[in-house]
Amino acid sequence: MRLFLVSLSSHQGQLVRDQDPTAPSPDKTPDDKKQKGPISTQNTLLFSEMRENMIIMSDGSFRAVVECESINFDLMSSREREGIEFSYQNFINSLYFPIQVLIRSRRVDIGPYLDRLAEIRRNQDNMLLNVLMDDYMDFIDILAQEANIMDKSFYVVVPYYPAGEENAFKQQTKGLFNSFFSGKKEATVTKIDQVTYTKAKDEIKNRIDSVMNGLFQMGVKSWQLNTRQLGELFYTSYNPDTSSRESLEEH
Score class of each variant (00 low, 15 high):
residue 229 Q to P: 01
residue 134 D to L: 09
residue 210 S to N: 09
residue 104 R to N: 07
residue 89 Q to W: 00
residue 39 I to A: 08
residue 114 L to P: 05
residue 179 S to D: 08
residue 178 N to D: 15
residue 182 S to T: 14
residue 85 E to Q: 13
residue 116 R to A: 15
residue 24 P to W: 05
residue 166 E to I: 12
residue 99 I to F: 01
residue 206 N to G: 05
residue 185 K to L: 03
residue 15 L to T: 10
residue 114 L to V: 04
residue 49 E to V: 10
residue 182 S to L: 14
residue 158 V to I: 15
residue 16 V to C: 15
residue 239 N to Y: 15
residue 36 K to E: 14
residue 145 Q to S: 15
residue 108 V to G: 00
residue 2 R to A: 10
residue 26 P to L: 02
residue 192 I to Q: 10
residue 147 A to M: 12
residue 151 D to A: 11
residue 75 L to W: 06
residue 36 K to I: 04
residue 78 S to L: 06
residue 29 T to C: 06
residue 231 G to R: 06
residue 251 H to L: 11
residue 237 S to K: 03
residue 68 C to P: 04
residue 157 V to C: 09
residue 230 L to R: 05
residue 200 A to S: 15
residue 212 M to K: 12
residue 209 D to W: 01
residue 204 I to P: 02
residue 161 Y to C: 12
residue 120 I to F: 12
residue 7 S to R: 13
residue 212 M to F: 09
residue 34 K to A: 02
residue 193 D to A: 11
residue 31 D to M: 07
residue 170 K to R: 07
residue 86 F to L: 13
residue 196 T to G: 03
residue 196 T to M: 09
residue 198 T to Y: 02
residue 237 S to R: 08
residue 228 R to M: 09
residue 78 S to M: 05
residue 74 D to G: 00
residue 228 R to E: 14
residue 37 G to I: 05
residue 189 V to F: 07
residue 94 S to W: 04
residue 12 Q to G: 06
residue 236 T to H: 10
residue 162 P to G: 06
residue 83 G to M: 15
residue 124 Q to D: 11
residue 125 D to V: 06
residue 242 T to V: 13
residue 203 E to P: 04
residue 89 Q to N: 12
residue 88 Y to F: 07
residue 41 T to L: 15
residue 215 L to M: 14
residue 80 E to K: 14
residue 220 V to D: 01
residue 139 F to L: 08
residue 172 Q to D: 08
residue 25 S to D: 14
residue 187 A to P: 06
residue 169 F to M: 15
residue 222 S to Y: 08
residue 10 S to M: 10
residue 152 K to I: 07
residue 89 Q to V: 02
residue 20 D to L: 10
residue 83 G to W: 02
residue 146 E to S: 10
residue 135 D to W: 05
residue 230 L to E: 01
residue 56 I to H: 10
residue 86 F to A: 09
residue 25 S to G: 03
residue 131 V to A: 13
residue 130 N to L: 12
residue 214 G to I: 07
residue 172 Q to K: 13
residue 234 F to H: 11
residue 23 A to P: 00
residue 233 L to I: 00
residue 195 V to M: 11
residue 194 Q to I: 13
residue 7 S to V: 02
residue 24 P to T: 05
residue 140 I to D: 00
residue 83 G to I: 03
residue 144 A to W: 04
residue 85 E to K: 03
residue 58 S to F: 01
residue 29 T to H: 10
residue 233 L to W: 09
residue 214 G to L: 07
residue 141 D to A: 07
residue 166 E to Q: 13
residue 19 Q to F: 15
residue 1 M to G: 14
residue 233 L to V: 08
residue 74 D to C: 05
residue 115 D to C: 00
residue 86 F to M: 10
residue 139 F to W: 05
residue 61 S to M: 09
residue 191 K to G: 06
residue 74 D to A: 10
residue 24 P to E: 13
residue 175 G to C: 00
residue 124 Q to W: 00
residue 208 I to L: 15
residue 185 K to E: 10
residue 112 P to F: 03
residue 58 S to N: 13
residue 107 R to M: 11
residue 159 P to N: 06
residue 183 G to Q: 07
residue 178 N to K: 14
residue 38 P to C: 01
residue 207 R to A: 04
residue 54 M to C: 00
residue 62 F to W: 08
residue 146 E to G: 04
residue 245 R to T: 13
residue 96 Y to H: 08
